[in-house]
Amino acid sequence: MSAIKVMVVDDSAVVRQVVAGLLGAAPGIEVLAAVADPLLAIERLRQAWPDVIVLDVEMPRMDGITFLRKIMAERPTPVVICSTLTEKGARTTLEALAAGAVAIVTKPRLGLKQFLAEAGDELVATVRAAARANVRRLAPRADAAVQPVAPKNTADVILAPAGPRAMTQTTERVIALGTSTGGTQALEEVLSALPRVCPGIVIVQHMPEKFTAAFATRLDGLCRIEVREARHNDRVVPGRALIAPGGKHLLLKRSGAQYVVDVVDGPVVNRHRPSVDVLFRSVAKSAGVNALGVIMTGMGDDGAAGLAEMRAAGARTLAQDEESCVVFGMPKEAIKRGGVERTVPLQGIAAEIMKQ
């Protein structure tokens, strides 16, 4: 296979040096150019077009959002956003995701060189995933996420597996959605298609701290249902979707006749916190046959084991089909492990949620 060709666009000389060095040292990746702003990038694009662009969003002369929109209109290309972990950075990054970016890599304001060196594996993995993205799905809507690099724990570090048929059937249903790369775009499409009255929904979207609150607020403004970042002991009720906060695990539990959520710290699971496997296992234990589990676009295998546990507990289980995924990794793994009853296109998921 030919090398993945990458362009780095960032006004920080340190970021350009470190990112270009990390990517250039990775097998199968070639850095075509590392430039200080979008106007210089446009000049270099006339000479050679990369497979992936790593882009800062706050730059002089031309901001990253304007440049991104220009790229997506002229020649759609996978773009990884390099963003700071601030509220302002989160809002700007969500604009970039809405304009068609694939993924987020976060950078701190201080200790940048050390941070980027330590996060090298994450950066390389994110660029590789972006290179495999289904560019046809990169419409100017929204997108997501990153792949934190950490020990690959299982959900056992958070909670024990469910017993067989953990719950008897009731009239109250719970929908559990898990997604990663490409997921913000996919979630926007699914949630905005739902009527005001629909089953309660719990969601894990792989996304950094500070970004999930801004993402939930954005979705809440676009949807008929209520969408918000989950808080400890929030009730799961019809017409409400709760999104796991970045950096925390989300668990469903039964409290009397009600479903509520736990928002907890704990080790990363499948290199993620929040983890889809943790959410799905908790839904298998607390809702069982009363649940629907849906695994959507994303790289890696987080959620594959948990969806199999949900199916074993009597839940309905679905996977987003390959054609509509930005990255088919997570659904593909769930199918391989036997956790998926059937696949459905993205535009069909809302209808499945509304089935009795």
Rank of each mutant, 00 (worst) to 15 (best):
V227Q: 04
V227S: 06
E229V: 02
E229Q: 15
H232S: 13
H232K: 08
N233L: 15
N233R: 11
N233Q: 14
N233F: 14
N233W: 13
D234C: 10
D234H: 13
R235N: 04
V236I: 06
V236T: 02
V236R: 03
V237I: 13
V237N: 13
R240E: 10
A241W: 01
L242P: 02
L242H: 07
I243N: 10
A244C: 14
P245K: 07
P245V: 04
G247E: 06
G247S: 06
G247F: 03
G247C: 04
K248I: 00
K248F: 05
K248A: 07
K248H: 08
H249A: 06
H249K: 06
L250V: 04
L250I: 03
L251P: 00
K253M: 10
K253D: 14
R254C: 12
R254K: 12
R254Q: 11
S255Q: 12
G256F: 02
A257R: 11
Y259D: 13
V261D: 14
D262Y: 11
V263W: 07
V263M: 09
V263I: 10
V263C: 06
V264Q: 11
D265C: 05
G266D: 05
P267E: 12
V268M: 08
V269N: 15
V269A: 15
V269S: 11
R271W: 07
H272W: 00
R273H: 05
R273I: 01
R273P: 00
S275K: 11
V276M: 07
D277P: 01
D277T: 10
F280P: 01
F280Y: 04
R281W: 00
S282Q: 05
S282A: 06
V283K: 03
V283R: 04
V283I: 06
V283F: 07
A284S: 12
A284K: 10
K285S: 10
K285W: 06
A287F: 01
A287K: 02
G288V: 01
V289E: 09
A291R: 10
A291W: 13
A291P: 09
L292P: 00
V294K: 13
V294S: 09
V294N: 10
I295C: 14
M296Q: 11
M296I: 04
T297P: 05
M299D: 00
M299K: 00
M299A: 00
G300Y: 04
G300E: 02
D301G: 12
D301N: 13
D302R: 08
G303Q: 04
A304S: 12
A305P: 15
A305C: 08
G306T: 04
A308K: 13
A308S: 15
E309C: 05
E309A: 08
M310H: 06
M310G: 02
A312G: 12
A315S: 15
A315Y: 06
R316Q: 08
R316E: 11
R316S: 11
R316L: 14
Q320I: 09
Q320F: 15
Q320P: 09
D321T: 06
E322L: 05
E323I: 09
E323M: 09
E323W: 02
E323K: 09
E323D: 10
C325L: 14
V326G: 11
V327H: 13
F328H: 15
F328P: 04
G329Y: 14
